[in-house]
Design a binder for these strands. Structure first.
Lengths: 146, 146
DNA sequence: CTGGATGTAATTTCAACGGTTACATCAGTT
DNA sequence: AACTGATGTAACCGTTGAAATTACATCCAG
């Protein structure tokens, strides 16, 4: 099972907003064009990013603004904003291990900390990258193209 | 989206096989009882573990045996055996970024290596744990219970 | 050859993702 | 005040995959 494309779409949104903020009015329609999807999909993701306090969205006129310095918005922040899994467990656990079985009774105690370690390793790596990296990375790419 | 419970089920299977190998005949029915699911689910997972070369399963009489030392079977080995995603990408990418848009055209170049880093961090942590850790961990738990 | 076990196809249920239409709401502009 | 263009959101659909279940063919030790 893969982490849904909402995550890469959200990163794409941040990159577009920063790249085009002085050049175009970056609306959900504009973003949908760049990303290749439906404006409603974009708006749903924008709503999630708003709820997480990462951006503000102006109604009526349109316009998306990050609420903090881009270097203070990590991939992990975006991931947490986008992923609806309550509890935040990366690994789904089978729900009915037998309480009669010595192994079934203790399998959670045995696995939980290890699974948390693995998840933490991923999340810590996510914290190392920020939207500012996307800004500079895209600027480099576009500078080389020109 | 969560990684499916097949993964924790597979780890549960390995733990049961090791814990009960001298005490019971560990069949798919037996395992289904401990795990709290259907024997066919177990058999499908056993088939995947066989295909990956991690275990052998005796037909007719039943019986499951790891093909290597438990310390040589990592969580990552199990994960790879169980997860059917071709290419093995953890992050799903939106499929139609616009080739007309400067950002859309370059978003893959911008993100791919970063996503790979994050995935690698998770997988490397998975390689640190082995089935031998489950053996000793479960033995400790059961020793304290007694 | 028979009983108990695995292998596997077929089907069902359920949930989530992504897409789409439709419409209410909002905020500048004229 | 009405218009215009944008966001917010509900409702629905199609597809996919997970997990469960039934049914049956196949295998092999005793």
């Amino acid at each position: 099972m893969q982490i849904p494309s909402r995550f890469t779409v959200a990163l794409h949104i941040f990159t577009c907003v920063d790249t085009f903020k002085d050049e175009y009015k970056v609306t959900s329609d504009f973003l949908a064009g760049s990303i290749g999807t439906n404006p409603v999909i974009i708006r749903k993701i924008l709503t999630q990013l708003q709820s997480a306090g990462l951006i503000t969205v102006a109604r009526g006129t349109g316009g998306i603004s990050p609420t903090r310095e881009l270097s203070e918005i990590s991939f992990y922040d975006v991931y947490q904003a986008i992923e609806p899994v309550e509890g935040g467990d990366l690994f789904r656990f089978h729900e009915n291990p037998s309480p009669q079985c010595p192994v079934g009774k203790n399998i959670h105690a045995l696995l939980d900390d290890k699974l948390k370690d693995i998840q933490a390793a991923m999340e810590n790596e996510m914290k190392k990258y920020t939207i500012a990296d996307l800004r500079t990375g895209m600027q480099d790419i576009l500078a080389k193209e020109a």
